[in-house]
């Protein structure tokens, strides 16, 4: 059926076709999720145990069951552009209770990986990347803490990359291998 358009944005919005068409589905999306999540995401039968277990569901519009459904149907756009994708605390309660033995949490992680490939990612995630790239730590040391450490008889900096900075280039090499830092910088600059 030809797409309709009334050329009146208000009407086009109000009367937009809400049906689900085959063209909305990308079977490859399901396959990619299966591979990345390493769980049988295609086997969901929509019982809702996941949402019922989810600490985020009662306080938001986030429905993990809905993402599972989108995964089964290959609804890539709808999955990756939904801001609720980032409300999973990865508590794995759904995974422990899923009667199909699926790990919905890992499906969410796989979708987030795929979203990042399309530059869809909350800023705070990228800031963590930058911190680790520069110091090896996602939560680096600070002066107040150094003073406290000294008082406890600990070295001012822990025996991690903070003390052994010679390990940082290796870490940067790993991150650069995946071009993560460059992408993070680029996406953050674009914001």
């Amino acid at each position: 059926m030809a797409a309709k358009s009334y050329n009146i944005s208000e009407l086009d919005n109000k009367l937009a076709d809400r049906r689900y068409h085959l063209a909305d589905s990308n079977p490859e999306f399901t396959q990619k999720i299966l591979k990345t999540s390493r769980t049988i995401a295609n086997m969901c039968y929509q019982c809702g145990t996941c949402t019922g277990s989810c600490p985020s569901a009662p306080r938001s519009s986030y429905r993990i069951r809905l993402f599972m459904r989108r995964c089964v149907l290959g609804l890539e756009n709808e999955s990756l552009t939904d801001p609720d994708l980032w409300l999973c605390t990865t508590c794995y309660s759904c995974t422990d209770r899923c009667p199909r033995d699926i790990a919905p949490t890992d499906v969410i992680m796989a979708m987030r990986n795929l979203a990042f490939k399309r530059d869809i990612i909350p800023k705070n995630f990228l800031q963590t990347v930058q911190l680790i790239y520069n110091s090896g730590h996602g939560v680096p040391n600070n002066d107040v803490n150094r003073a406290a450490r000294t008082k406890l008889g600990l070295p001012a900096d822990p025996p991690t990359t903070h003390t052994y900075a010679e390990f940082i280039p290796g870490i940067q090499k790993i991150i650069d291998h995946y071009e993560l830092k460059a992408n993070a910088d680029r996406i953050l600059k674009g914001d």
Partner: peptide, 9 residues
């Protein structure tokens, strides 16, 4: 954070 961005990293 890292798992969400790229599990391989």
């Amino acid at each position: 954070a890292f798992g969400s961005i790229d599990l391989n990293v």
